[in-house]
Design a protein around this nucleic acid. Structure first.
Lengths: 237, 237
DNA sequence: TCGTAGTTACGTACACCGTACGTAGTGCGC
DNA sequence: GCGCACTACGTACGGTGTACGTAACTACGA
């Protein structure tokens, strides 16, 4: 009694099972899986404590025995998704390996479109985050730089992937979600933008739109961004 | 009657004033300013339709005359913050100018810590976003690349700034928010991480932490990231 | 072996959220 | 001057996170 002590600790620091009392009906993995299932099928906003509890088949407040705050539920989800990273024996070519990491992360985020929104702090040292980091560092073994630099590289890689995938997803979303037909939405946008540009206040924007290099290949843009970033590291040039 | 047509359009495409009926009591700028004031003082989560209406001194539902959905309120906020960008006559050195842009954006985000969270799609063509883009393009005039490449550069710059500031803010937040004293929180984290590392499963992570190059200088990390990114562009090397 | 303390489970309740809808009043364009 | 499009705003609905109280259960210390 006397108020259960609120625990600010990282969820990974508290043991999943303490030994006292009846054995918990679910594991953290169960809970994470349920939340991920909902988020995949109905979007992140559908993930509420009530909904997850219903998916598990337990009372809403029972969830709070496993997850002190909703934020921690999110951490469980991110970790579960991170577990889908398949790791491999480093090839010896750190550049190729890091490109492969980036593409895998991108695929992961496309499979779980809610991931980017939950990844604001680069990584929270969840079990699978540690596995992932260790793997990246292993891939970077051939790179003659201190670990500090390697961690910077990894952070930057994750940042770029997150940024680009977020953009891709936003574009997808925009074209899919509204039944006001994409053409109508686009027409409105173009009309507005065209009107703005026609004022002559933005000559370079006008030129950029006039340039019109056909439909932009987002995949290629992603590739170029990665390449340029990795060029910034590597053996002293 | 017959249901007011829900309007999916971008808020910037609808005129602020139509001419008919009583003149609106507030301008979009008033509303944006109120929301920004609240977000700055009490955090983004304190920005609710009710709260903003109260700040303005009007009824909650009156806000919906100006802003069809809450999401549009966010757009107003982002645009208002974007208006704080001070633009200058390009120096002729595009690299220096872009660094200056980056630092200014970073400062802006530190002044308005809620900004990164609202900037998921790189930019939504709000009035101030257009001003900003045009200015960046002007700074990039000396760079002999097509506009497509320049836009990629700008997107990447914004992405990196957002990523790094998000990290900085998360760190700040973590150290500030909880009165459980930062030492306690840190101690728990270190203990957990140390325990994990001690298992020997993560030898490179262990080495990375052992490297211990003193307290990390986030500012310097930011600078290096920018430099490396800009190196990826520039005259053919 | 047996209390008892620490857990699990979960229903109820509260304060808050976004916003659909209806109604009343206002002032411009025809 | 009429009518209509607009502003203003109160009420209400279905949702949210979660504090708190209670009952059942089990592993440990005596």
């Amino acid at each position: 009694m006397a108020g259960r002590a609120a625990e600010p600790e990282v969820i990974w620091a508290r043991p999943e099972r303490t030994g006292r009392g009846p054995r918990p009906a679910y594991t953290r993995a169960d809970i994470a899986a349920a939340a991920v299932r909902i988020a995949d099928a109905e979007g992140l906003d559908a993930v509420s404590m009530r909904r997850v509890a219903a998916e598990l088949g337990c009372g809403t407040m029972s969830l709070y025995n496993y997850v002190p705050r909703k934020e921690d539920l999110y951490e469980l989800m991110v970790d579960a998704a991170g577990g889908e990273h398949e790791l491999w024996e480093p090839s010896g070519d750190w550049r190729a390996d890091m490109l492969r990491v980036a593409h895998q992360t991108r695929a992961l985020m496309h499979r779980h479109p809610w991931l980017p929104r939950l990844m604001s702090p680069v990584y929270g040292f969840s079990p699978n985050a540690l596995r992932y980091l260790e793997h990246c560092l292993a891939c970077l073994d051939p790179l003659p730089e201190p670990y500090g630099t390697k961690l910077e590289l990894i952070a930057m890689l994750n940042g770029i992937v997150t940024t680009y995938v977020t953009n891709e997803l936003a574009t997808d979303e925009r074209t899919r979600s509204l039944p006001w037909s994409q053409e109508r939405e686009n027409a409105i946008r173009i009309a507005y933008l065209g009107g703005r540009i026609a004022t002559g206040e933005y000559p370079r924007m006008a030129a950029a739109f006039a340039e019109d290099a056909g439909p932009i290949d987002l995949e290629a843009v992603f590739e170029r961004a990665l390449g340029r970033m990795l060029d910034g590291f590597g053996p002293r040039r």
